[in-house]
Design a protein around this nucleic acid. Sequence first.
DNA 1: CGGGAGAATACTTTATCCATAATTATGAAT
DNA 2: ATTCATAATTATGGATAAAGTATTCTCCCG
Lengths: 221, 221
Amino acid sequence: MNSETLNRTAESIAPRALYIEVADRLRRLIQSHAMAPGEWIDEQALASQYGISRTPLREALKVLATEGMVVLKPRRGCYVAQISGGDLEEIYPIMALLEGECAASAARRASDADLADLAALHQRLEDSAAARDVEGFFDANQRFHLLIHHVAGNRRLAQMIDELRAVLKLQRHDSLYLEGRLVASLEEHRVLLAALREHDAESARSAMQRHIESSRRALGG
Amino acid sequence: MNSETLNRTAESIAPRALYIEVADRLRRLIQSHAMAPGEWIDEQALASQYGISRTPLREALKVLATEGMVVLKPRRGCYVAQISGGDLEEIYPIMALLEGECAASAARRASDADLADLAALHQRLEDSAAARDVEGFFDANQRFHLLIHHVAGNRRLAQMIDELRAVLKLQRHDSLYLEGRLVASLEEHRVLLAALREHDAESARSAMQRHIESSRRALGG
DNA sequence: CGGGAGAATACTTTATCCATAATTATGAAT
DNA sequence: ATTCATAATTATGGATAAAGTATTCTCCCG
């Protein structure tokens, strides 16, 4: 049992090229605000920090640029993208549209098991809210949305939403910390869950759209 | 007035990196079906054909891969993406959604000048249809949709639609050649234009959605 | 005759290197 | 003293080379 076998197994599980790995790490770095929007990305420093050459790093940056996470200025280098108010004006209607479609599709397709899972996650939301656990609420909220994407069954739609959400996350999201926003969000989730349970696609769609719109207003968009 | 000013001007006109140029060319190549879906892309041959090194070419391929135009199989090389029936099932609802939103937004925002331009393009559609000029019809149709995107004023939404349409174009689009499809498409455009003229956003949205759905059915989706 | 293993070939992948362009700092001149 | 120009340094972008991995073909053994 040499290392070759291990490598092959590891690769068949994760046949990811280096540039993809790097892109993932950078995405997490940017989303966790370890790198601030507008900040210059030092290719050399980052490459030597990761112990890789600049080539896969540059390829990763090209990918992130097409995703809108970074901006590549010719001969000027790479900068973490910063979104303007105008960008939010454009993105939120799209998000509402896509998430709404996801919710509608999920309402049509949800099995009893799916609904049970959704109810369980919603309970976590309720518990977190009752405990004033904002981080827990945020996490459960994210899982709730991801589960809806999964139930909706449109992987491409889910991926588009994920990319848009990644761009939105470039700016700090402290809306949930605002007084009243957490309970309002909870109430919106209740309405959404009820629509999903009744397999009412259009109610689920509008509930989700209202949910997105109100979270936008909470940000002052 | 030194050369610096001139340089800056020149750069703001054409500051495109080589990989972007290459990506554009490849996009056109793939969309014109000069490269068939599933076909292997020979990096070395293409690089020497363009007189460039493989580095910018590979960067371009990474970009196209994130756009869904090509598929990058680790250690296997790059292939022109081929979309399955399942992909169509996923993409068309998204297209209908996004194009519908575009139409709704355009209906709200269209100025009289915009409506005049749209009417002029629609006339080209009518003329091309009367002359059985399928290529002309196709071209006018494309311009009509692009103009709606422009009037809608959401650049990000338009870009998402463009990328999706590029993926759809991977397969041959001979639906317009089908008997009856051309006149049906024309009638759908008439309804859409009427809704836009009346600034009726929801009618425009549903007209566009029906238009997308029927073009899908024409493909046998 | 068929299957498995090993070797060879070819292509991807990564790293290093070079050139070009831009920006900044310093010096000189007004 | 301030501004402009020039030079130097630094970083990006493109190229080439080397290494590693996967696949395929052939040969040998059962």
